[in-house]
């Protein structure tokens, strides 16, 4: 069972998401929070596998919540998926930097929603790849990165994996495309994360877009 916490200020969104997720046999909603402070408190107490966090919330916004639960320096980070109303959100870069594992549109639909929770839990694919890749592409044009890490740290094979991740491929798809085994892909991914100093898949993808490794 994947345990999920839902943080959103709209009661009808919370109850709707709860109904949708509870319908899945492998997902269990363990808590709901109506504002940012309550979200942090519940997440620390319940330690859910995945937190779905709305950006615009009273008292503390979703970015601050993400930072507190998954940000740099957090001892035992949780997996946070930022749930947004708008597909072009100016907060995307902030959410990424704050350690969000991915983005999801609130109205993505039951199938995508459940997939996103599973992807965040497993970490082997981008969360709602089409949306995330589009957001990341937008990010390339909109932001300049403080320190662009050189590609040189990575081997050619690792760069291939990075490009595949940036395009939204799952580990399994990468394995098939590069004719390598799934466990090799996984070891490449963790190697890349170590070398780039990033925490999750979506950060690898963002790095690829920002350094224009993919375009």
């Amino acid at each position: 069972m994947i345990s999920v916490l839902i943080a959103d200020d709209q009661a009808m969104v919370r109850s709707g998401l709860r109904l949708i997720l509870s319908d899945q046999p492998d997902i269990e909603v363990v808590g709901e929070a109506a504002d940012g402070v309550a979200a942090i408190e519940q997440a620390r107490r319940l330690r859910p596998d995945v937190c779905l966090v709305d950006i615009r919330m009273p008292r503390l916004d979703g970015l601050a919540v993400t930072r507190a639960l998954a940000g740099p320096g957090v001892a035992a980070p949780l997996r946070v998926v930022v749930v947004t109303t708008f597909d072009l959100d100016e907060y995307v870069y902030g959410a990424l930097r704050d350690g969000a594992a991915g983005f999801l549109l609130k109205d993505a639909g039951p199938a995508l929603l459940a997939e996103a929770v599973r992807a965040a839990y497993a970490g082997d694919s981008l969360i709602s790849p089409s949306i995330t890749v589009r957001l990341l592409r937008h990010l390339t044009a909109a932001t300049t990165v403080d320190t662009i890490k050189p590609w040189g740290k990575l081997s050619d094979r690792e760069l291939d994996v990075v490009r595949a991740i940036a395009r939204g491929l799952t580990n399994q798809e990468i394995a098939a495309e590069l004719f390598i085994s799934l466990s090799t892909v996984k070891s490449h991914v963790s190697g890349i994360q170590t070398k780039l100093g990033v925490r999750n898949r979506v950060e690898i993808a963002a790095w690829a877009w920002q350094t224009r490794l993919v375009s």
């Binding site: 109850s15 709860r18 109904l19 109303t85 609130k106 109205d107």
Partner: peptide, 21 residues
């Protein structure tokens, strides 16, 4: 509009599940 419509969409998706279960 987006704020409210999002809620309505999510609620409607949930209602279809309710209708089934």
């Amino acid at each position: 509009a987006a704020h409210h419509l999002t809620g309505i969409v999510v609620q409607t998706q949930a209602a279809r599940i309710v209708a089934r279960t």
